[in-house]
Protein backbone atom coordinates (compact mmCIF):
# COMPACT_ATOMS: atom_id res chain seq x y z
CA UNK A 1 0.00 0.00 0.00
CA UNK A 2 2.70 2.41 1.08
CA UNK A 3 4.62 1.70 -2.11
CA UNK A 4 1.51 2.27 -4.18
CA UNK A 5 0.88 5.73 -2.74
CA UNK A 6 4.45 6.65 -3.54
CA UNK A 7 4.21 5.29 -7.07
CA UNK A 8 1.10 7.31 -7.76
CA UNK A 9 2.78 10.45 -6.54
CA UNK A 10 5.82 9.94 -8.73
CA UNK A 11 3.68 9.15 -11.75
CA UNK A 12 1.87 12.40 -11.19
CA UNK A 13 5.21 14.16 -11.16
CA UNK A 14 5.99 12.57 -14.53
CA UNK A 15 2.70 13.56 -16.07
CA UNK A 16 2.81 17.21 -15.03
CA UNK A 17 5.77 18.19 -17.29
CA UNK A 18 4.55 15.97 -20.10
CA UNK A 19 1.37 17.98 -20.12
CA UNK A 20 2.84 21.34 -19.16
CA UNK A 21 6.01 21.43 -21.24
CA UNK A 22 4.95 18.89 -23.82
CA UNK A 23 1.30 19.52 -24.61
CA UNK A 24 0.90 23.08 -23.41
CA UNK A 25 4.39 24.15 -24.39
CA UNK A 26 5.21 26.16 -21.27
CA UNK A 27 8.93 25.84 -21.87
CA UNK A 28 9.92 28.97 -20.02
CA UNK A 29 8.06 27.80 -16.95
CA UNK A 30 9.58 24.31 -16.92
CA UNK A 31 12.97 25.32 -18.30
CA UNK A 32 13.63 28.50 -16.35
CA UNK A 33 11.17 29.44 -13.64
CA UNK A 34 10.82 26.08 -11.94
CA UNK A 35 14.53 25.26 -11.98
CA UNK A 36 15.38 28.60 -10.41
CA UNK A 37 12.62 28.13 -7.88
CA UNK A 38 13.65 24.58 -7.06
CA UNK A 39 17.28 25.47 -6.72
CA UNK A 40 16.43 28.33 -4.42
CA UNK A 41 14.20 26.13 -2.29
CA UNK A 42 16.92 23.50 -2.14
CA UNK A 43 19.70 25.86 -1.10
CA UNK A 44 17.64 27.85 1.36
CA UNK A 45 15.90 24.75 2.67
CA UNK A 46 19.15 22.90 3.14
CA UNK A 47 20.70 25.84 4.95
CA UNK A 48 17.56 26.31 7.01
CA UNK A 49 17.63 22.71 8.15
CA UNK A 50 21.32 22.70 8.96
CA UNK A 51 21.03 26.00 10.78
CA UNK A 52 18.01 24.69 12.64
CA UNK A 53 19.96 21.66 13.78
CA UNK A 54 22.92 23.83 14.56
CA UNK A 55 20.83 26.14 16.70
CA UNK A 56 20.11 23.32 19.12
CA UNK A 57 23.14 22.97 21.34
CA UNK A 58 24.96 19.76 22.13
CA UNK A 59 24.62 19.63 25.89
CA UNK A 60 26.59 16.46 26.46
CA UNK A 61 29.52 14.70 24.86
CA UNK A 62 28.03 11.31 24.02
CA UNK A 63 30.21 9.47 21.49
CA UNK A 64 29.32 5.83 20.93
CA UNK A 65 32.65 4.17 21.54
CA UNK A 66 33.47 1.35 19.19
CA UNK A 67 36.83 0.36 20.61
CA UNK A 68 39.39 0.70 23.34
CA UNK A 69 39.58 4.13 25.01
CA UNK A 70 42.79 6.03 25.59
CA UNK A 71 43.80 5.16 29.13
CA UNK A 72 47.14 3.74 30.25
CA UNK A 73 49.98 4.32 27.83
CA UNK A 74 50.70 0.63 27.38
CA UNK A 75 47.13 -0.26 26.44
CA UNK A 76 46.64 0.09 22.72
CA UNK A 77 43.91 2.56 21.96
CA UNK A 78 41.59 2.19 19.01
CA UNK A 79 42.23 5.63 17.62
CA UNK A 80 39.52 5.50 15.00
CA UNK A 81 36.57 3.88 16.75
CA UNK A 82 37.31 5.47 20.08
CA UNK A 83 39.20 8.61 19.10
CA UNK A 84 40.45 10.98 21.75
CA UNK A 85 41.83 13.58 19.37
CA UNK A 86 40.36 15.86 16.72
CA UNK A 87 42.32 14.07 14.01
CA UNK A 88 41.00 10.70 15.11
CA UNK A 89 37.46 12.00 15.18
CA UNK A 90 37.83 13.49 11.70
CA UNK A 91 39.14 10.19 10.39
CA UNK A 92 36.23 8.40 12.03
CA UNK A 93 33.82 10.81 10.37
CA UNK A 94 35.49 10.49 6.98
CA UNK A 95 35.31 6.72 7.13
CA UNK A 96 31.71 6.98 8.23
CA UNK A 97 30.63 9.45 5.57
CA UNK A 98 32.60 8.10 2.62
CA UNK A 99 32.76 4.40 3.35
CA UNK A 100 29.77 3.81 5.64
CA UNK A 101 31.99 2.22 8.23
CA UNK A 102 29.20 1.45 10.67
CA UNK A 103 27.22 -0.37 8.04
CA UNK A 104 30.35 -2.21 7.06
CA UNK A 105 30.83 -3.31 10.64
CA UNK A 106 27.81 -5.44 10.03
CA UNK A 107 29.45 -7.31 7.30
CA UNK A 108 32.78 -8.27 8.73
CA UNK A 109 32.73 -11.96 8.03
CA UNK A 110 33.51 -14.00 11.07
CA UNK A 111 34.43 -17.62 10.77
CA UNK A 112 33.40 -20.09 13.36
CA UNK A 113 34.55 -23.62 13.22
CA UNK A 114 31.22 -24.65 14.57
CA UNK A 115 28.43 -26.78 13.36
CA UNK A 116 26.53 -23.74 12.20
CA UNK A 117 28.09 -21.66 9.48
CA UNK A 118 27.18 -18.05 9.65
CA UNK A 119 26.30 -15.76 6.83
CA UNK A 120 26.04 -12.04 6.99
CA UNK A 121 25.01 -11.87 3.36
CA UNK A 122 22.03 -9.60 3.71
CA UNK A 123 23.88 -7.02 5.73
CA UNK A 124 26.84 -7.07 3.40
CA UNK A 125 24.55 -6.37 0.52
CA UNK A 126 23.08 -3.45 2.36
CA UNK A 127 26.50 -1.87 2.72
CA UNK A 128 27.36 -2.63 -0.88
CA UNK A 129 24.01 -1.48 -2.21
CA UNK A 130 24.11 1.74 -0.25
CA UNK A 131 27.68 2.49 -1.27
CA UNK A 132 27.01 1.62 -4.91
CA UNK A 133 24.03 3.92 -4.98
CA UNK A 134 25.74 6.87 -3.35
CA UNK A 135 28.95 6.62 -5.36
CA UNK A 136 27.05 6.36 -8.64
CA UNK A 137 24.84 9.25 -7.63
CA UNK A 138 27.76 11.55 -7.00
CA UNK A 139 29.62 10.45 -10.13
CA UNK A 140 26.53 11.13 -12.20
CA UNK A 141 26.18 14.48 -10.51
CA UNK A 142 29.81 15.27 -11.37
CA UNK A 143 29.29 14.23 -14.98
CA UNK A 144 26.39 16.63 -15.23
CA UNK A 145 28.66 19.49 -14.27
CA UNK A 146 29.72 19.66 -17.91
CA UNK A 147 26.36 21.29 -18.57
CA UNK A 148 27.13 24.08 -16.18
CA UNK A 149 30.76 24.85 -16.97
CA UNK A 150 32.53 26.25 -20.02
CA UNK A 151 35.27 25.23 -20.57
CA UNK A 152 34.63 21.94 -18.77
CA UNK A 153 37.24 21.45 -16.05
CA UNK A 154 39.55 18.50 -16.57
CA UNK A 155 38.29 16.79 -13.41
CA UNK A 156 34.80 16.33 -14.82
CA UNK A 157 36.20 15.04 -18.08
CA UNK A 158 38.30 12.50 -16.25
CA UNK A 159 35.36 11.31 -14.25
CA UNK A 160 33.36 10.91 -17.41
CA UNK A 161 36.14 9.03 -19.18
CA UNK A 162 36.55 6.78 -16.17
CA UNK A 163 32.83 6.13 -15.98
CA UNK A 164 32.72 5.14 -19.62
CA UNK A 165 35.84 3.03 -19.44
CA UNK A 166 34.00 -0.09 -20.52
CA UNK A 167 33.84 1.42 -24.03
CA UNK A 168 30.61 -0.30 -24.89
CA UNK A 169 28.06 1.11 -27.29
CA UNK A 170 27.54 4.44 -28.95
CA UNK A 171 27.23 6.70 -27.10
CA UNK A 172 29.50 5.07 -24.59
CA UNK A 173 27.62 3.28 -21.84
CA UNK A 174 28.31 4.67 -18.38
CA UNK A 175 28.96 2.11 -15.67
CA UNK A 176 27.21 4.28 -13.07
CA UNK A 177 23.95 4.11 -14.96
CA UNK A 178 23.83 0.36 -14.68
CA UNK A 179 25.06 0.42 -11.11
CA UNK A 180 22.61 3.02 -9.89
CA UNK A 181 19.71 1.14 -11.44
CA UNK A 182 20.79 -2.10 -9.84
CA UNK A 183 21.40 -0.41 -6.50
CA UNK A 184 18.03 1.30 -6.54
CA UNK A 185 16.34 -1.94 -7.53
CA UNK A 186 18.06 -3.70 -4.64
CA UNK A 187 17.14 -0.98 -2.14
CA UNK A 188 13.57 -1.14 -3.35
CA UNK A 189 13.25 -4.90 -3.44
CA UNK A 190 14.56 -5.44 0.05
CA UNK A 191 11.95 -3.04 1.34
CA UNK A 192 9.23 -5.00 -0.38
CA UNK A 193 10.50 -8.50 0.11
CA UNK A 194 11.92 -8.52 3.62
CA UNK A 195 8.91 -8.44 5.96
CA UNK A 196 10.82 -6.61 8.70
CA UNK A 197 11.68 -3.83 6.29
CA UNK A 198 8.23 -3.75 4.78
CA UNK A 199 6.94 -3.26 8.29
CA UNK A 200 9.12 -0.23 8.98
CA UNK A 201 8.91 1.38 5.53
CA UNK A 202 6.84 4.50 5.06
CA UNK A 203 5.40 5.92 1.83
CA UNK A 204 8.17 8.51 1.87
CA UNK A 205 10.79 5.76 1.82
CA UNK A 206 9.35 4.46 -1.42
CA UNK A 207 8.75 7.92 -2.79
CA UNK A 208 12.43 8.81 -2.67
CA UNK A 209 13.36 5.59 -4.42
CA UNK A 210 10.73 5.95 -7.14
CA UNK A 211 11.65 9.55 -7.75
CA UNK A 212 15.29 8.63 -8.20
CA UNK A 213 14.28 5.77 -10.47
CA UNK A 214 12.26 8.12 -12.62
CA UNK A 215 15.11 10.59 -12.86
CA UNK A 216 17.61 7.93 -13.86
CA UNK A 217 15.29 6.34 -16.37
CA UNK A 218 14.37 9.61 -18.03
CA UNK A 219 18.05 10.43 -18.22
CA UNK A 220 18.91 7.12 -19.79
CA UNK A 221 16.08 7.44 -22.28
CA UNK A 222 17.41 10.80 -23.39
CA UNK A 223 20.94 9.58 -23.80
CA UNK A 224 20.36 6.32 -25.59
CA UNK A 225 16.88 6.18 -27.01
CA UNK A 226 15.10 9.47 -27.61
CA UNK A 227 18.22 11.46 -28.28
CA UNK A 228 18.11 14.99 -27.01
CA UNK A 229 20.12 17.81 -28.55
CA UNK A 230 23.02 18.29 -26.19
CA UNK A 231 24.02 21.62 -27.68
CA UNK A 232 20.62 23.12 -27.12
CA UNK A 233 20.43 21.75 -23.61
CA UNK A 234 23.77 23.25 -22.82
CA UNK A 235 22.57 26.57 -24.14
CA UNK A 236 19.72 26.37 -21.67
CA UNK A 237 21.79 25.26 -18.72
CA UNK A 238 24.58 27.77 -19.33
CA UNK A 239 21.96 30.46 -19.66
CA UNK A 240 20.57 29.44 -16.29
CA UNK A 241 23.97 29.54 -14.68
CA UNK A 242 24.87 32.93 -16.21
CA UNK A 243 21.49 34.32 -15.20
CA UNK A 244 20.71 35.03 -18.84
CA UNK A 245 18.15 32.32 -19.47
CA UNK A 246 17.52 31.37 -23.02
CA UNK A 247 15.05 28.68 -24.10
CA UNK A 248 15.98 26.92 -27.35
CA UNK A 249 12.86 25.77 -29.19
CA UNK A 250 14.05 22.30 -30.10
CA UNK A 251 14.22 20.85 -26.60
CA UNK A 252 11.69 18.05 -26.17
CA UNK A 253 9.24 17.14 -23.43
CA UNK A 254 11.43 14.28 -22.21
CA UNK A 255 14.13 16.69 -21.21
CA UNK A 256 11.62 18.84 -19.34
CA UNK A 257 10.34 15.75 -17.59
CA UNK A 258 13.85 14.87 -16.50
CA UNK A 259 14.43 18.42 -15.38
CA UNK A 260 11.12 18.62 -13.58
CA UNK A 261 11.80 15.42 -11.67
CA UNK A 262 15.18 16.77 -10.65
CA UNK A 263 13.47 19.96 -9.55
CA UNK A 264 11.03 17.87 -7.52
CA UNK A 265 13.94 16.12 -5.87
CA UNK A 266 15.57 19.45 -5.08
CA UNK A 267 12.39 20.78 -3.55
CA UNK A 268 11.66 17.60 -1.64
CA UNK A 269 15.20 17.08 -0.40
CA UNK A 270 15.46 19.56 2.47
CA UNK A 271 12.19 18.45 4.06
CA UNK A 272 12.82 14.75 3.98
CA UNK A 273 15.00 12.00 5.33
CA UNK A 274 17.33 12.70 2.42
CA UNK A 275 18.75 15.37 4.70
CA UNK A 276 20.84 12.59 6.20
CA UNK A 277 23.40 14.01 3.79
CA UNK A 278 23.71 16.99 6.09
CA UNK A 279 22.69 15.34 9.34
CA UNK A 280 25.37 12.70 9.39
CA UNK A 281 27.95 15.40 10.00
CA UNK A 282 26.07 16.61 13.05
CA UNK A 283 25.49 13.28 14.78
CA UNK A 284 26.89 13.70 18.31
CA UNK A 285 27.57 10.00 18.79
CA UNK A 286 29.99 10.07 15.88
CA UNK A 287 31.45 13.54 15.58
CA UNK A 288 32.66 13.91 19.14
CA UNK A 289 35.91 12.56 20.54
CA UNK A 290 35.98 10.10 23.41
CA UNK A 291 38.00 12.43 25.60
CA UNK A 292 35.29 13.07 28.17
CA UNK A 293 37.44 12.78 31.24
CA UNK A 294 40.31 14.74 29.67
CA UNK A 295 38.51 17.81 28.39
CA UNK A 296 35.40 19.21 29.97
CA UNK A 297 32.44 19.72 27.71
CA UNK A 298 30.28 22.72 28.50
CA UNK A 299 26.52 22.54 28.45
CA UNK A 300 25.25 26.01 27.52
CA UNK A 301 21.95 25.53 29.32
CA UNK A 302 23.30 23.89 32.44
CA UNK A 303 21.22 25.19 35.31
CA UNK A 304 21.33 24.84 39.09
CA UNK A 305 19.15 22.09 40.49
CA UNK A 306 17.68 21.31 43.85
CA UNK A 307 20.21 19.43 45.91
CA UNK A 308 20.22 17.61 49.17
CA UNK A 309 23.33 19.22 50.63
CA UNK A 310 25.71 17.59 53.03
CA UNK A 311 24.73 20.03 55.76
CA UNK A 312 21.04 19.21 55.45
CA UNK A 313 21.84 15.56 55.35
CA UNK A 314 24.11 15.66 58.38
CA UNK A 315 21.39 17.43 60.33
CA UNK A 316 19.18 14.42 59.70
CA UNK A 317 21.71 11.79 60.70
CA UNK A 318 24.10 13.54 63.09
CA UNK A 319 23.12 11.72 66.26
CA UNK A 320 23.21 8.30 64.70
CA UNK A 321 26.53 9.07 63.06
CA UNK A 322 28.11 10.25 66.27
CA UNK A 323 26.84 7.16 68.01
CA UNK A 324 28.43 5.00 65.33
CA UNK A 325 31.70 6.91 65.50
CA UNK A 326 31.47 8.45 62.03
CA UNK A 327 33.11 11.90 61.86
CA UNK A 328 30.69 14.85 61.58
CA UNK A 329 31.12 18.53 60.76
CA UNK A 330 29.11 20.02 63.60
CA UNK A 331 29.44 18.41 67.01
Amino acid sequence: MNALYALIMVLALVIIPLLGAGAAGWHALFGVVLPYLAFTVFVLGFLYRVVKWGRSPVPFKIPTTGGQQESLPWIRQNRIDSPSTKTGTVIRMILEVLLFRSLFRNTRVRLFKDETQLSYGSSKFLWLGALAFHVSFFVILARHMRFFTEPVPALFNWIETLDGIMQVGVPVLFATEIVILLALAYLFLRRVLVPQLRYISLPTDYFALFLLFAIVISGILMRYFVRADIVDIKTLTMGLIQLQPEVPESIGALFYTHLFLVCSLLVYFPWSKLMHLGGVFLSPTRNMPNDNRMRRHVNPWNYPVKLHTYEEWEDEYRDKMKEAGIPVEKE
Partner: peptide
Protein backbone atom coordinates in the same frame (compact mmCIF):
# COMPACT_ATOMS: atom_id res chain seq x y z
CA UNK B 1 5.48 -12.35 10.09
CA UNK B 2 8.08 -9.62 10.31
CA UNK B 3 10.06 -11.71 12.70
CA UNK B 4 9.89 -15.02 10.91
CA UNK B 5 12.17 -13.90 8.12
CA UNK B 6 14.76 -12.88 10.67
CA UNK B 7 14.42 -16.17 12.54
CA UNK B 8 14.90 -18.08 9.33
CA UNK B 9 17.48 -16.01 7.52
CA UNK B 10 19.93 -15.06 10.18
CA UNK B 11 22.04 -18.18 10.42
CA UNK B 12 24.42 -16.96 13.06
CA UNK B 13 23.37 -18.68 16.21
Amino acid sequence: EDTVSFLKRQKDR
